Amino acid sequence: MKNPHFCLVLILLLSVEVSGQRNMHFIKTKNAKELHAFFRYTGNDAILVTGHRGGMVKGFPENSIATFENTLKHTPAFFEIDPRLTKDSVIMLLHDPTLERTTTGKGKLADYTFAELKNFRLKDAQGHVTDYPIPTLAEVIEWARGKTILNLDHKDVPLEMTAALIRKHKADGFVMLTVHNPQQASFYLEQNKNSTFSAFIRSKEEFEDYRKAGIPFTQLIAYIGPWVKPENQELYRLLNKEGAMCMISAASSYDKLKSAEERKAAYLSIARDGATIIESDYPIEVAESIRPLQQEKSPQKKFFSRK
Rank of each mutant, 00 (worst) to 15 (best):
P216D: 11
F217D: 10
Q219I: 04
Q219S: 14
Q219T: 03
Q219E: 11
L220C: 01
L220V: 12
I221F: 04
A222E: 01
Y223T: 02
Y223P: 00
I224S: 06
G225A: 09
P226R: 15
W227F: 10
K229P: 07
K229T: 13
K229L: 10
P230A: 15
E231F: 07
N232H: 09
N232T: 02
Q233C: 13
E234F: 01
E234I: 02
L235G: 03
Y236T: 02
R237M: 11
R237D: 12
L239H: 04
K241W: 04
K241A: 06
E242C: 07
G243N: 10
G243K: 05
G243A: 01
M245Y: 06
M245P: 00
C246V: 04
I248W: 07
A250G: 00
A250H: 14
A251H: 10
S252A: 10
S252T: 13
S252P: 03
D255R: 03
K256E: 10
K256R: 10
K258P: 04
S259G: 02
E261R: 11
R263N: 00
K264G: 05
S269E: 12
I270E: 04
I270V: 14
I270Y: 15
A275H: 14
A275G: 05
I278A: 09
I278Q: 05
E279V: 07
E279L: 10
E279D: 07
S280H: 11
D281I: 09
Y282E: 01
P283Y: 12
P283G: 06
P283K: 15
E285M: 02
E285A: 03
V286G: 07
V286A: 07
A287S: 13
A287E: 05
E288K: 12
S289D: 01
S289H: 05
I290T: 15
